[in-house]
Design a protein around this nucleic acid. Structure first.
Length: 320
DNA sequence: CTCATTTGACCCCA
DNA sequence: TGGGGTCAAATGAG
């Protein structure tokens, strides 16, 4: 009975988000085309529809707490495992706990949200941090050697919310991202008006990105000072999607006032978020909960806390 | 063969 | 001296 209602609502929600996804695809196509008055209008129209649909989806989530997904993760790439965790949920039984089993991690139930954020990361170290329950993983840009790109990031599972991750970015990508990134940049140049419209949308779909460094001229903010992963904010987005930033970032989702929230100037990014939301809702079916899964992120990743609170659901679609 | 991950060792700094 | 960050050899996957 309740399941039927829930299932129906879920289907509706999936349908709505599917439409959002389609709209974003259309928007992306428009952004790739040279700008003219018609395409700008069309982009505006698409943005309005996207906003309206996301509004509705959020409303549905709020009115149907049962639609809250089971804890799930949607990672963007094979990611390193927590070395301290020998009971890796995606690791085949009997496999070596030490070496990566990249392909084994992509089970049919795992949601891969985004194929490419334009940047790729290579893990170069992992350390147990004093006072932290979970080790910290260190990543650098894959193009460090070939393009002298000095961007790095640190990913650490939050102690208080094991499903959440603190992601800190250092440095700036100087590499030229592959297809996706380049494409979005081109779209930016071709259609600045549409980009402005997208930024308008971004203002509503705020992904809180806070800085921990003043490299970008922003006040320092530590994970502790921002309620990103506090008790009232049960989930977090941690993704290298924001890796284009100057300086060092602590990234997450939060309704906290963010001095330097990320400008969504990339249609690829926008689509990633929408795709993520879509994937998250589509995957309400129970997924394996990687309890000790350490999830550094290659692309976009949504992490639902195990105490998922529907009242604060969809923080990526935060409305100020 | 190439590339990514793991992990112990090493380096730097407070 | 200890903690955090990085290096690099070993190893696995494709």
């Amino acid at each position: 009975m309740a399941e039927a209602v829930e299932s129906g609502g879920r289907a509706l929600l999936v349908s709505e988000l599917g439409r959002v996804q389609d709209l974003v695809s259309q928007l992306e196509l428009q952004l790739r085309a040279p700008a003219d008055a018609d395409s700008v209008d069309l982009c505006r129209c698409l943005v309005q529809q996207i906003v309206a649909l996301t509004d509705r989806s959020i409303g549905m989530l709020h009115s149907s707490p049962d639609l809250a997904p089971s804890p799930l993760t949607a990672t963007g790439s094979p990611i390193s495992s927590d070395a301290a965790s020998d009971h890796h949920p995606f690791r085949p039984a009997g496999a070596s706990p030490k070496k990566r089993k990249a392909t084994a991690r992509w089970t049919s139930q795992q949601v891969r949200v985004s194929a490419d954020d334009g940047h790729s990361w290579r893990k170069y170290g992992q350390k147990d941090i004093l006072g932290a329950r979970h080790p910290r993983a260190y990543y650098r840009c894959t193009h460090r050697n070939s393009q002298n790109c000095l961007a790095t990031k640190q990913v650490q599972r939050a102690d208080d919310h094991p499903a959440l991750f603190d992601v800190v970015y250092h440095g700036e990508h100087t590499c030229r991202p592959a297809a996706a990134g380049g494409g979005s940049k081109r779209a930016q140049q071709h259609n600045p008006h549409a980009q402005a419209a997208l930024q308008g949308l971004a203002a509503r779909l705020t992904v809180a990105t806070t800085t921990t460094d003043n490299a970008a001229g922003l006040p320092p903010m530590t994970p502790e000072s921002c309620p990103v992963r506090g008790a009232s904010s049960p989930w977090s987005l941690a993704s290298p999607v924001g890796s284009d930033f100057n300086g060092c970032l602590h990234q997450g989702i939060s309704p906290c006032p963010v001095p330097g929230y990320r400008d969504w100037t990339s249609d690829v990014d926008l689509q990633e978020v929408v795709s993520s939301a879509f994937a998250a809702v589509s995957s309400v079916a129970p997924l394996p909960v990687p309890d000790d899964e350490f999830m550094p992120l290659e692309c976009v990743e949504y992490v639902f806390d195990q105490n998922f609170d529907i009242d604060t659901a969809m923080p990526s679609l935060y409305y100020p």
